[in-house]
Computed example of a mutant assay.
Amino acid sequence: MVGYGPEGDHFVTELTYNYGIGSYQLGNDFLGITVASRQAVSNARKLKWPLSEMGDGVFETKAPGGYKFYLQDCSPPQSDPVLKVTLAVSDLQKSLNYWSNLLGMKIYEKDEKEQRALLGYADNQCKLELQAIPGKVDHATGFGRIAFSCPQKELSDIEDLMKRENQKILTPLVSLDTPGATVQVIILADPDGHEICFGDEAFRELSKVDPEGNKLLDD
């Protein structure tokens, strides 16, 4: 789990290595992560990491697996430099109904011409951007999921709501015994098959920063 701060109040990315798999086929579902960081741009230039200038101080780059990142050459406007995650959708209005009306996300921006919308649960948190694309959203084999921390008492309400609305539930509410804590999760799928995990506050016990983490990783 990597990020710019503790998982309790920062967006983090989970990197998973699966043994015996040399590469993944990327689909058109994940459009990128936007990060505001002068340091990131400076690091990329110093390391001669490929950057494509997009204008207005924004640079496109790719992680080794091909996943896109957009680096803004500026100081972050919030405590977390990760500004947004952008996902492709086939029908913007249908997706807005799901993410906003059902899952309760606030719509911060909506651009009918560009067919995009920006949503979030709080002003100072990483946002979710939905971008409509022509045709079908293809997840191929290199897809992941977005996870949200949620009070345990609300998880059953989410499950009941999805059942009433005949929405897809990939994993019904379940308790997972994990070293350090027992967590409850429910995994959903939006109209385009994007996987969404809601997990309870026990995740905070698992996400505490290990002061020896960097040394252990180096070793």
Rank of each mutant, 00 (worst) to 15 (best):
L96P: 05
F143A: 01
A122E: 13
G8L: 13
T182D: 06
L176N: 06
N28D: 08
A36L: 10
S90V: 08
K153T: 14
S52M: 13
G120W: 09
K62S: 08
G180F: 11
V183F: 10
G66K: 00
P76Q: 00
Y24H: 01
L155T: 04
S90T: 05
S175V: 14
Q39W: 06
C74T: 06
I187N: 03
T86E: 05
P172G: 03
L87Y: 09
K46P: 05
L217A: 15
S23H: 12
M1S: 10
D157K: 08
F69Y: 15
S23L: 11
L83M: 07
A189F: 07
S37N: 04
R116P: 08
T178M: 08
K215G: 08
G142W: 01
L217H: 13
A189R: 00
D210S: 10
F143D: 00
P211D: 10
V89S: 00
S207P: 10
N101R: 03
A117C: 03
N101T: 13
P50L: 09
H139I: 11
L87D: 00
S42G: 11
Q78D: 12
P81N: 05
S75T: 12
F198R: 02
E112L: 10
Y98R: 01
L103G: 00
Y17A: 03
C74S: 09
I158K: 02
D91Y: 13
E159G: 04
G193T: 02
G5W: 06
F69M: 10
R38L: 15
Y108F: 15
A202K: 00
A140N: 06
D200N: 12
K163Q: 14
G8E: 14
W49G: 03
K48T: 10
G5Y: 03
V2D: 15
L130M: 09
Q78T: 11
S95G: 04
Q78E: 13
I146R: 01
P191Y: 08
E165K: 12
L71Q: 01
Q25F: 14
S156T: 14
L173M: 06
I169K: 00
G180Y: 12
L96Q: 02
Y17P: 01
F198A: 02
P172T: 04
L119C: 03
M105L: 13
Y24L: 11
G120E: 05
